[in-house]
Design a binder for these strands. Structure first.
Lengths: 228, 228
DNA sequence: CGACTGCTAACTGTTGACAGATAGCCTCTG
DNA sequence: CAGAGGCTATCTGTCAACAGTTAGCAGTCG
């Protein structure tokens, strides 16, 4: 569980080739420019990034530690692939993090926080009504926002990392509809309970919500071409 | 949240300097041979490990991603230090992981598993009776065992990583008594409920247990010399 | 015809040297 | 004597070349 891999509001842009490469590579993996299972040729990649292999290898080590790449001795680094069991494992980890997060959020959330998240949900609702579906950013942004409300930076970093892995795992399924309508209602219900200070209920709702999301993800996943 | 940094039963020893250095360095940090706040001189360390700076730097990147080291641009890598807030954040993350883990364990635990963990607890009880206190390995080993019962390798890796960070954070307090007697009883209670298949109750007990552990850790922490 | 063995090409793992940045010290000045 | 400024030594960031390993292919033998 790394704790310092997101840009951060105060942290100015990485000033080293190695650091910049981490961000560039992560973006290439998450955007699908590098596909799951694909091998990274160090010489070729270094030339493309206009750096030498040293800093590139450091970046690869970091992303491997984040779970986005997998390194095989003397054979190279590959974009990580996930089977159905691993996707389930990832979701269980996510559920662990986010159910506890809402519990904490319910204890600590201020009136301003409630308003902020409410505003976020309203925007999402508008987007849904406008049928302008861009499911990924909004969906995960809500969950990230909730965790951010705990004020626990370490918990947030861990959550972001898991979200990224899940995004990668699901990427092979293409951009399927993510049951946005139902998810929206469930988000609203979670926030209501958090705002009311009922962490227990919020946690239960979040757990149910994420388990439904998991089932949905697995259904899509099983219907897609395998990863081996 | 990295997912492949523990030796693993099947995974043979790392065959590369870089990989071996990760294990050696992690051990140096966790054993206290490298102290929190201490700076790692690359040239000196590389000479000590009898390797060059390249692989060493790769290892350092990995450990930074694991949260055991902190890298400052153009200044070097330092063994990470934690303040009281970060220790609390770490514990909250740990609580998130382990409360959900016992929930899963309660669903999946077999009779053999129950016997195994029961045996572990018996041994611990014997050690306590014999007054041969070696608190750390047993304490964390129990919690790791519980998480392992979920069969979720990713969850286990994340938990181990958090445990390591907590161990590092607490290391400055020296080896204080870790209220072994009370912890033992609470462990026993958790296992009983897991064995009975009552995940909800087990989770509540685990949460209470870990919050008590946190309060204890913070009490010791505050009474120790600061980290800045 | 199939399997095994040895060779070759490509790539990763590692090294040592070069360049740029940082921090501490020393000097100079008000 | 205190503070500012420049200088120097040390260390990190980066690079290019060397060495060892792996995978694929061709050739040979059963």
């Amino acid at each position: 569980m790394s704790s310092s891999h997101l840009p951060g509001p105060l942290e100015r842009r990485a000033q080293t080739f190695s650091g910049r490469s981490v961000e560039v590579l992560r973006d290439m993996v998450l955007s699908g420019r590098l596909k799951p299972g694909q091998r990274l040729n160090e010489v070729e990649l270094a030339r493309a990034l206009e750096i030498s292999r040293g800093p590139l290898r450091e970046a690869i080590q970091r992303l491997a530690s984040e779970g986005l790449l997998r390194i095989v001795s003397h054979r190279g680094a590959y974009v990580r692939t996930f089977d159905a069991d691993e996707l389930r494992d990832l979701y269980e980890l996510r559920i662990a993090l986010e159910t506890h997060a809402v519990r904490l959020a319910a204890e600590r959330m201020t009136a301003d926080d409630v308003a902020d998240v409410g505003g976020l949900l309203d925007e999402t609702g508008d987007m849904l009504a406008a049928d302008d579906e861009r499911p990924y950013p909004e969906e995960l942004d809500f969950h990230r926002r909730i965790v951010a409300l705990t004020g626990n930076q370490i918990l947030l970093s861990a959550t972001v990392e898991v979200h990224q892995q899940i995004h990668l795992a699901r990427s092979r399924s293409g951009q399927q509809p993510r049951r946005a309508r139902h998810a929206y209602d469930e988000h609203r219900a979670v926030v209501d309970h958090v705002a009311a200070g009922d962490g227990e209920a919020a946690a239960n709702l979040m757990r149910a919500h994420l388990y439904r999301s998991l089932e949905n993800a697995l259904r899509i996943f099983d219907a897609s071409p395998g990863d081996t």
